[in-house]
Nucleic acid binder design. Sequence first.
DNA 1: AATCTAAATGGGAGCGCTCCCAGAACCTGA
DNA 2: TCAGGTTCTGGGAGCGCTCCCATTTAGATT
Lengths: 341, 341
Amino acid sequence: MRPMNLEDIARKAGVSRSTVSRVINHEAYVSERTRQRVLQVIEAESFSPNQAAQMLARGRTFVMGVVVPHETGAFFDDPFYFPTLLRGVTEVANQRDYATLLWLGDASLEGTRFYRRVLQNRLMDGLFVSTAPTDGILLDWLLELHIKFVVAERPVHSADRISYVTVDNVGAAIMVTEHFLRLGRRRIAHIVGRRTNIDALDRLAGYRQALARAGCPVDEALIEDGYFTRRGAYEATLRLLPHRPDAIFAAHDQMAVGVLQALHRAGRRVPEDVAVIGFDDLPTATEVSPQLSTVRQPVHEKGAQATRLMLDMIDGSVTEPQHLLLPTELVVRETCGGTSP
Amino acid sequence: MRPMNLEDIARKAGVSRSTVSRVINHEAYVSERTRQRVLQVIEAESFSPNQAAQMLARGRTFVMGVVVPHETGAFFDDPFYFPTLLRGVTEVANQRDYATLLWLGDASLEGTRFYRRVLQNRLMDGLFVSTAPTDGILLDWLLELHIKFVVAERPVHSADRISYVTVDNVGAAIMVTEHFLRLGRRRIAHIVGRRTNIDALDRLAGYRQALARAGCPVDEALIEDGYFTRRGAYEATLRLLPHRPDAIFAAHDQMAVGVLQALHRAGRRVPEDVAVIGFDDLPTATEVSPQLSTVRQPVHEKGAQATRLMLDMIDGSVTEPQHLLLPTELVVRETCGGTSP
DNA sequence: AATCTAAATGGGAGCGCTCCCAGAACCTGA
DNA sequence: TCAGGTTCTGGGAGCGCTCCCATTTAGATT
């Protein structure tokens, strides 16, 4: 049997299609009596309007998209970052009565084919981009197609034309490095996340800047790639050890765990021999021993703020590109004790 | 400016609306010459059809939904399970050209309000239900509304009317418990996941069955609740210790980690004093020391198979409720060594 | 009661597609 | 050459809403 439509409800309530529509959309100019009668019928028939028709007629979908490119790997590498971000997004979407279309990049799909699918889908009023690999062209395409979107990362280029919400990664990395320096550490190593990730690059940049500022020469042998994986960081640490680091700044907590494991295996004491600081403040940070010092960033809030911004762009209350920097905080725990080596 | 529509493309290509529609939908009966001309225009204008209109006209949306009730907590507790499941779902959805609408339960939303939103959304051809709390009414509502759906868990009731894909949790728990028995353990404890979760209840049931079968009386003091959290399991273990367990079966790996931590703190050796087995075989299992023995279940496959089943139900190639049980495997690592206490 | 205004209601048009039917164009073979 | 089929093409109707305008009704004011 055909599902009910406005007309059916109208007939049952003895009113017109238009009136039912008004009731459903909470419009003014409906008498209280009529409203109640209509609501009763709607309830009785457990009717809800056909959204495709609404979309078509309104030219608005009340659907937003979330893209997670596959390259990020975030979904696997970092078991908390992405889900937390996603919660922030969906919470705001729920609040504002938006539905969320999820686009998870697929390893089996060539990158551009995936993007094509996303971009050709005209079902979304706007798009939340969790991360945009620096070697990707997604953002350029989005700009070109005049799609409203917000990125949860600093875009490498065209940043003035793009809205984004992120944290000051450079500043946070400076904070970490200076903390090590203050503790008297001089052979500070950094394990880079991924060279196609702007957060990772910014953290690297901050690390370099802090050393430069302190007049410390940067020893390139103390910079290794960890690819945002625990295993990658584990191996990076083993490569690092011959160069006698007394501190290691890992670009995220999951990698920091790998660092701790490698140090443990190599018989180095933490923090006495080597101090360690991570990034993100995942639950893991307090679950490892010794407990991990790290940089806390408001991931949930990042998703929420970015989504708010995007929905504001959709309904026109924000028209210019906005850039939001959320605060970070150095959380000192056991892995970066105050003692010198 | 108004976005292009079929008519615009038709005009530019010198054909009719219908012909353009045929080309877009790969229908037969379009001459090769015309097809090429139309495709060229479409490409040039980077046109893609308005999906709202397609949905309305077709009565099909090619959108599927994914529900994750909030109560599950899975999103936080177990950092891998849900994301992995989700990947399985979206991969198949991508393959079959479905978009995925994500419904993440929201703590701030009362349960039924959340469900109402999901159910009233008439944008989906079908629904993937990741988990259905045993005290919930989601499944009943779905049945009542004749919505096509598949659950990634065994439903507590009406199971014969519901399609689901899961693993044999009872069997797996029996496997674990019998493994302990074979190793000579006699005071085997179990840490229950959550009493509103059928997987958890089935694992508990399997544990009981295996003991009963072996003629071992079940000591209720050896059964504790861990609420599917590491912390919960940690505390459960501490409560368990006075009852001198020589083996602990945790209902999932994250909890097993909590068990290991508690045992470590209490100075118990693993596996010599207490053997431990978890469930899921998350990456964590090999990242802890000693490495965790566990039950491997094909989570990704579960999501994929369930989605396939659901899409088959939508397009009518499957009409009867189907029940799929995917295989599990006991992965023996270090936490359940062969030595007796 | 008559007048004016504001509130309440109904219905046509249109959103951009698909589906179906009618008809044109093309091909075959007698 | 023409009938008879197949292939191709065009356009009307309709999907279920919203939006707007026209009209009716109720309420306030004299």
